[in-house]
Protein backbone atom coordinates (compact mmCIF):
# COMPACT_ATOMS: atom_id res chain seq x y z
CA UNK A 1 0.00 0.00 0.00
CA UNK A 2 1.32 3.41 -0.95
CA UNK A 3 2.44 5.78 1.76
CA UNK A 4 0.13 8.74 2.22
CA UNK A 5 2.11 11.93 1.45
CA UNK A 6 2.72 14.13 4.48
CA UNK A 7 0.78 17.07 2.99
CA UNK A 8 -2.33 14.90 2.56
CA UNK A 9 -2.03 13.45 6.06
CA UNK A 10 -1.78 16.96 7.58
CA UNK A 11 -4.76 18.20 5.59
CA UNK A 12 -6.92 15.22 6.56
CA UNK A 13 -5.81 15.32 10.22
CA UNK A 14 -6.50 19.06 10.46
CA UNK A 15 -9.95 18.87 8.83
CA UNK A 16 -11.01 15.83 10.87
CA UNK A 17 -9.94 17.46 14.12
CA UNK A 18 -11.69 20.73 13.27
CA UNK A 19 -14.93 18.91 12.47
CA UNK A 20 -15.06 16.18 15.12
CA UNK A 21 -12.30 16.74 17.67
CA UNK A 22 -10.78 13.40 16.71
CA UNK A 23 -6.98 13.48 16.83
CA UNK A 24 -5.22 11.32 14.23
CA UNK A 25 -1.56 10.52 14.63
CA UNK A 26 0.93 9.57 11.93
CA UNK A 27 0.81 5.89 12.95
CA UNK A 28 -2.79 5.79 11.75
CA UNK A 29 -1.87 6.38 8.10
CA UNK A 30 -2.87 2.77 7.42
CA UNK A 31 -6.32 3.35 8.96
CA UNK A 32 -6.75 6.43 6.79
CA UNK A 33 -5.88 4.43 3.66
CA UNK A 34 -8.29 1.58 4.40
CA UNK A 35 -11.19 3.80 5.49
CA UNK A 36 -10.87 6.35 2.69
CA UNK A 37 -10.04 4.08 -0.26
CA UNK A 38 -13.75 3.24 -0.84
CA UNK A 39 -14.62 6.97 -0.99
CA UNK A 40 -11.80 7.61 -3.47
CA UNK A 41 -13.09 4.77 -5.67
CA UNK A 42 -16.66 6.09 -5.49
CA UNK A 43 -15.44 9.53 -6.56
CA UNK A 44 -13.47 7.99 -9.45
CA UNK A 45 -10.19 9.14 -7.97
CA UNK A 46 -7.06 6.99 -8.28
CA UNK A 47 -5.89 7.17 -4.67
CA UNK A 48 -6.54 8.52 -1.20
CA UNK A 49 -3.94 11.17 -1.92
CA UNK A 50 -5.97 12.33 -4.94
CA UNK A 51 -9.11 12.32 -2.80
CA UNK A 52 -7.42 14.54 -0.24
CA UNK A 53 -6.16 16.88 -2.97
CA UNK A 54 -9.61 17.08 -4.54
CA UNK A 55 -11.29 17.93 -1.22
CA UNK A 56 -8.64 20.58 -0.54
CA UNK A 57 -8.56 22.27 -3.96
CA UNK A 58 -12.30 22.13 -4.59
CA UNK A 59 -13.00 23.21 -1.00
CA UNK A 60 -15.62 20.51 -1.21
CA UNK A 61 -17.41 20.61 2.14
CA UNK A 62 -19.54 17.53 1.41
CA UNK A 63 -16.49 15.46 0.48
CA UNK A 64 -14.48 16.67 3.47
CA UNK A 65 -17.34 15.69 5.82
CA UNK A 66 -17.45 12.25 4.22
CA UNK A 67 -13.73 11.89 4.90
CA UNK A 68 -14.16 12.90 8.56
CA UNK A 69 -17.20 10.64 8.98
CA UNK A 70 -15.34 7.63 7.60
CA UNK A 71 -12.54 8.06 10.15
CA UNK A 72 -14.75 8.19 13.26
CA UNK A 73 -14.92 5.18 15.54
CA UNK A 74 -18.44 3.80 15.88
CA UNK A 75 -17.59 0.75 17.97
CA UNK A 76 -20.52 -0.05 20.25
CA UNK A 77 -22.66 -2.91 21.50
CA UNK A 78 -25.83 -3.48 23.50
CA UNK A 79 -25.15 -3.10 27.24
CA UNK A 80 -21.50 -2.37 26.57
CA UNK A 81 -19.50 -3.12 29.77
CA UNK A 82 -22.83 -4.27 31.37
CA UNK A 83 -22.30 -2.89 34.89
CA UNK A 84 -22.99 0.79 34.06
CA UNK A 85 -26.54 -0.20 33.04
CA UNK A 86 -27.06 -2.09 36.31
CA UNK A 87 -25.81 0.96 38.22
CA UNK A 88 -28.23 3.20 36.31
CA UNK A 89 -31.16 0.81 36.95
CA UNK A 90 -30.44 0.06 40.62
CA UNK A 91 -28.99 3.34 41.90
CA UNK A 92 -28.94 6.39 39.66
CA UNK A 93 -32.45 6.30 38.15
CA UNK A 94 -34.27 5.33 41.41
CA UNK A 95 -32.46 8.10 43.27
CA UNK A 96 -33.33 10.67 40.62
CA UNK A 97 -36.95 9.45 40.72
CA UNK A 98 -37.03 10.09 44.47
CA UNK A 99 -35.53 13.55 43.98
CA UNK A 100 -37.70 14.51 41.00
CA UNK A 101 -41.06 13.12 42.05
CA UNK A 102 -43.28 13.31 39.00
CA UNK A 103 -40.92 15.51 37.03
CA UNK A 104 -39.38 14.12 33.89
CA UNK A 105 -35.86 12.66 34.00
CA UNK A 106 -33.81 13.61 30.94
CA UNK A 107 -31.05 11.30 29.70
CA UNK A 108 -28.55 12.21 26.99
CA UNK A 109 -26.41 9.72 25.07
CA UNK A 110 -23.83 12.13 23.69
CA UNK A 111 -22.30 9.80 21.11
CA UNK A 112 -24.99 7.25 20.44
CA UNK A 113 -23.42 5.70 17.32
CA UNK A 114 -25.73 3.06 15.81
CA UNK A 115 -28.19 3.23 18.72
CA UNK A 116 -27.23 0.29 20.94
CA UNK A 117 -26.53 2.51 23.99
CA UNK A 118 -29.77 4.56 24.04
CA UNK A 119 -31.83 1.46 23.19
CA UNK A 120 -30.16 -0.45 26.05
CA UNK A 121 -31.27 2.32 28.42
CA UNK A 122 -34.76 2.32 26.88
CA UNK A 123 -35.01 -1.45 27.48
CA UNK A 124 -33.92 -0.97 31.10
CA UNK A 125 -36.56 1.75 31.60
CA UNK A 126 -39.23 -0.38 29.89
CA UNK A 127 -38.49 -3.28 32.23
CA UNK A 128 -38.56 -0.96 35.26
CA UNK A 129 -42.01 0.16 34.10
CA UNK A 130 -43.14 -3.46 33.75
CA UNK A 131 -42.08 -4.01 37.38
CA UNK A 132 -44.19 -1.05 38.46
CA UNK A 133 -41.19 1.23 38.92
CA UNK A 134 -42.49 3.55 36.25
CA UNK A 135 -40.60 6.68 35.40
CA UNK A 136 -41.18 9.60 33.09
CA UNK A 137 -37.94 9.43 31.15
CA UNK A 138 -36.86 11.18 27.98
CA UNK A 139 -33.85 9.79 26.10
CA UNK A 140 -32.05 12.08 23.67
CA UNK A 141 -29.43 10.38 21.51
CA UNK A 142 -27.02 12.43 19.45
CA UNK A 143 -24.13 11.68 17.16
CA UNK A 144 -22.00 13.66 14.76
CA UNK A 145 -22.47 11.12 11.97
CA UNK A 146 -25.67 11.12 9.92
CA UNK A 147 -24.61 7.69 8.62
CA UNK A 148 -24.80 5.99 12.03
CA UNK A 149 -27.95 7.90 13.02
CA UNK A 150 -29.70 6.53 9.95
CA UNK A 151 -28.98 2.99 11.09
CA UNK A 152 -30.01 3.84 14.65
CA UNK A 153 -33.35 5.27 13.51
CA UNK A 154 -34.05 2.15 11.44
CA UNK A 155 -33.57 0.03 14.58
CA UNK A 156 -32.39 -2.95 12.52
CA UNK A 157 -29.52 -5.10 13.76
CA UNK A 158 -27.65 -8.11 12.44
CA UNK A 159 -27.62 -11.48 14.16
CA UNK A 160 -24.03 -10.75 15.15
CA UNK A 161 -24.96 -7.39 16.73
CA UNK A 162 -27.87 -8.75 18.80
CA UNK A 163 -25.63 -11.44 20.26
CA UNK A 164 -22.99 -9.11 21.67
CA UNK A 165 -24.10 -8.02 25.14
CA UNK A 166 -27.84 -8.57 24.73
CA UNK A 167 -29.25 -11.39 26.89
CA UNK A 168 -31.52 -13.68 24.86
CA UNK A 169 -34.53 -12.99 27.13
CA UNK A 170 -34.23 -9.31 26.20
CA UNK A 171 -33.93 -10.21 22.52
CA UNK A 172 -37.25 -12.08 22.82
CA UNK A 173 -38.95 -9.30 24.77
CA UNK A 174 -37.80 -6.30 22.76
CA UNK A 175 -37.07 -7.43 19.18
CA UNK A 176 -38.83 -9.09 16.29
CA UNK A 177 -37.26 -11.00 13.43
CA UNK A 178 -37.14 -9.12 10.12
CA UNK A 179 -35.69 -11.42 7.48
CA UNK A 180 -32.07 -12.03 8.45
CA UNK A 181 -32.12 -9.01 10.75
CA UNK A 182 -33.74 -8.16 14.09
CA UNK A 183 -35.90 -5.07 14.52
CA UNK A 184 -36.24 -3.33 17.87
CA UNK A 185 -39.85 -3.02 19.07
CA UNK A 186 -41.67 0.24 18.20
CA UNK A 187 -42.36 0.66 21.93
CA UNK A 188 -38.59 0.89 22.60
CA UNK A 189 -37.79 2.87 19.46
CA UNK A 190 -40.37 5.51 20.34
CA UNK A 191 -38.60 6.15 23.67
CA UNK A 192 -35.46 7.50 21.97
CA UNK A 193 -35.18 10.75 20.02
CA UNK A 194 -32.21 10.72 17.65
CA UNK A 195 -30.70 14.00 16.57
CA UNK A 196 -27.54 14.97 14.72
CA UNK A 197 -25.31 16.99 17.00
CA UNK A 198 -21.64 17.89 17.13
CA UNK A 199 -20.05 17.99 20.61
CA UNK A 200 -17.77 20.78 19.39
CA UNK A 201 -20.80 23.05 18.84
CA UNK A 202 -22.82 25.09 21.33
CA UNK A 203 -24.65 22.57 23.52
CA UNK A 204 -27.26 24.95 24.95
CA UNK A 205 -30.02 24.04 22.44
CA UNK A 206 -30.12 20.55 23.95
CA UNK A 207 -31.31 21.83 27.33
CA UNK A 208 -30.48 20.45 30.78
CA UNK A 209 -30.03 16.78 31.60
CA UNK A 210 -30.08 14.52 34.66
CA UNK A 211 -27.91 11.74 33.21
CA UNK A 212 -25.30 12.18 30.50
CA UNK A 213 -23.49 9.25 28.89
CA UNK A 214 -20.35 10.20 27.01
CA UNK A 215 -18.46 6.93 26.90
CA UNK A 216 -15.27 6.32 24.97
CA UNK A 217 -15.45 9.61 23.08
CA UNK A 218 -13.21 12.04 24.95
CA UNK A 219 -10.26 9.64 24.78
CA UNK A 220 -9.99 10.52 21.09
CA UNK A 221 -9.74 14.28 21.82
CA UNK A 222 -6.67 16.33 22.70
CA UNK A 223 -6.52 17.75 26.29
CA UNK A 224 -7.77 21.22 25.31
CA UNK A 225 -10.80 19.88 23.41
CA UNK A 226 -11.49 17.37 26.19
CA UNK A 227 -11.42 20.15 28.79
CA UNK A 228 -13.69 22.44 26.77
CA UNK A 229 -16.18 19.63 26.01
CA UNK A 230 -16.40 18.50 29.64
CA UNK A 231 -17.02 22.07 30.81
CA UNK A 232 -19.75 22.49 28.18
CA UNK A 233 -21.35 19.18 29.20
CA UNK A 234 -21.24 20.26 32.86
CA UNK A 235 -23.17 23.39 31.94
CA UNK A 236 -25.94 21.20 30.44
CA UNK A 237 -26.33 19.17 33.64
CA UNK A 238 -28.67 19.80 36.55
CA UNK A 239 -26.97 20.18 39.94
CA UNK A 240 -27.52 16.56 40.98
CA UNK A 241 -26.98 15.11 37.51
CA UNK A 242 -24.66 12.20 36.77
CA UNK A 243 -22.05 11.91 34.01
CA UNK A 244 -21.11 8.44 32.79
CA UNK A 245 -17.76 8.11 31.01
CA UNK A 246 -16.08 4.97 29.65
CA UNK A 247 -14.75 2.54 32.25
CA UNK A 248 -11.15 3.69 31.78
CA UNK A 249 -11.91 7.41 31.42
CA UNK A 250 -11.58 10.03 34.16
CA UNK A 251 -12.01 13.78 34.43
CA UNK A 252 -9.46 14.34 37.16
CA UNK A 253 -6.49 15.62 35.18
CA UNK A 254 -8.73 17.55 32.77
CA UNK A 255 -11.24 19.59 34.76
CA UNK A 256 -12.44 20.01 38.35
CA UNK A 257 -16.06 20.33 37.22
CA UNK A 258 -16.67 16.67 38.14
CA UNK A 259 -15.89 14.26 40.95
CA UNK A 260 -15.84 10.45 40.75
CA UNK A 261 -18.85 9.08 42.64
CA UNK A 262 -17.56 5.74 43.89
CA UNK A 263 -20.64 3.85 42.64
CA UNK A 264 -18.94 2.34 39.60
CA UNK A 265 -16.22 3.02 37.09
CA UNK A 266 -16.98 6.04 34.90
CA UNK A 267 -19.68 7.55 37.15
CA UNK A 268 -19.09 11.23 37.93
CA UNK A 269 -21.08 13.85 39.81
CA UNK A 270 -21.12 17.50 38.84
CA UNK A 271 -19.15 19.59 41.29
CA UNK A 272 -21.31 22.70 41.41
CA UNK A 273 -19.02 25.00 43.33
CA UNK A 274 -16.14 24.56 40.94
CA UNK A 275 -18.15 25.38 37.87
CA UNK A 276 -17.71 28.71 36.22
CA UNK A 277 -20.89 30.65 35.65
CA UNK A 278 -22.23 29.18 32.42
Amino acid sequence: MSMLPEADFSFIAREVKARSGLVLDAEQAYLIETRLAPIARRENLASVSELSTAARLRRDERLTWQIADALLTNETSFFRDRTPFHTLRDHVIPELQRARGHEKIRIWCAASSTGQEPFSIAMVVDEMRAEGRGADIEIVATDISERVLEKARAGLYSQFEVQRGLPVQMLLRHFEKAGDLWRIADRIRAMVRFQRFNLLDDLHPLGKFDIVLCRNVLSYFDPATKHATLEKIAAQMNDDAVLVLGASETTSSVTDAFAAMGIGRGFHARRTGALRAA
Binding site: R82, F160, Q163, R164, G165, L166
Partner: peptide
Amino acid sequence: PFDGDILLSKFID
Protein backbone atom coordinates in the same frame (compact mmCIF):
# COMPACT_ATOMS: atom_id res chain seq x y z
CA PRO B 1 -22.23 -18.78 13.12
CA PHE B 2 -20.55 -17.80 16.37
CA ASP B 3 -17.09 -16.65 17.43
CA GLY B 4 -15.13 -16.26 20.65
CA ASP B 5 -16.65 -12.83 21.38
CA ILE B 6 -20.22 -14.08 21.14
CA LEU B 7 -19.49 -17.19 23.20
CA LEU B 8 -17.80 -15.11 25.91
CA SER B 9 -20.65 -12.57 25.89
CA LYS B 10 -23.30 -15.30 26.21
CA PHE B 11 -21.40 -17.14 28.97
CA ILE B 12 -21.29 -13.86 30.93
CA ASP B 13 -25.04 -13.30 30.30
